Simulated scan of single mutants.
Amino acid sequence: MWFNFEEVYGARGKNYIEVHHIKPLSTLEEEMGVGTEKDLVPVCANCHRMIPRRKDEVLTVEQLKLLIKNKI
């Protein structure tokens, strides 16, 4: 399930997407380089907010996909 920003916002939303750091930045103890294919995953803004919604239960992208699919 993907949100199409261009469909909703027209030209302003064309080619827009947010990215999620697979390893949360708040857990890093030191600065590290980020490789886009290894460390980042594109997500819509809503999903980007839902992944860390509960600090004691930060979801993976796969867990969020299951949540959306099953509405659990």
Rank of each mutant, 00 (worst) to 15 (best):
L28H: 10
V8P: 01
G33P: 09
R12L: 10
E7S: 13
G13M: 04
N15D: 15
E18Y: 05
P24Q: 06
N15A: 10
V19P: 00
H20V: 02
Y9L: 12
A11V: 07
M32F: 09
F5V: 01
E7C: 06
L25G: 07
G13F: 06
K14A: 14
V19M: 05
V34M: 10
E6I: 00
V19I: 05
K23P: 00
L25E: 05
I17F: 03
E31H: 12
Y16A: 01
G13Y: 06
Y9I: 00
L25Q: 09
T36N: 09
E29H: 10
T36W: 08
H20S: 05
S26C: 07
V34G: 05
L28Y: 08
R12I: 10
Y9H: 08
V34P: 03
I22R: 14
H21P: 04
T27D: 12
L28R: 08
V19K: 07
H21E: 02
K23F: 02
K23T: 09
S26N: 11
G35R: 13
T36C: 04
P24Y: 02
I22H: 03
V8I: 15
L28S: 10
E31W: 15
N15Q: 09
P24N: 07
L25H: 14
E7F: 08
V8A: 03
E30L: 03
K23D: 07
K14S: 13
E31D: 13
S26Y: 03
K14L: 08
Y16T: 01
V34F: 08
E31T: 11
S26R: 11
G35L: 13
E37T: 04
T36H: 09
E6P: 02
E7H: 12
H20P: 02
G33K: 15
E37I: 00
G10D: 08
L28K: 05
I17E: 02
H20R: 06
L25W: 12
V8D: 03
Y9F: 13
E30I: 11
V19D: 01
E31S: 12
N15R: 06
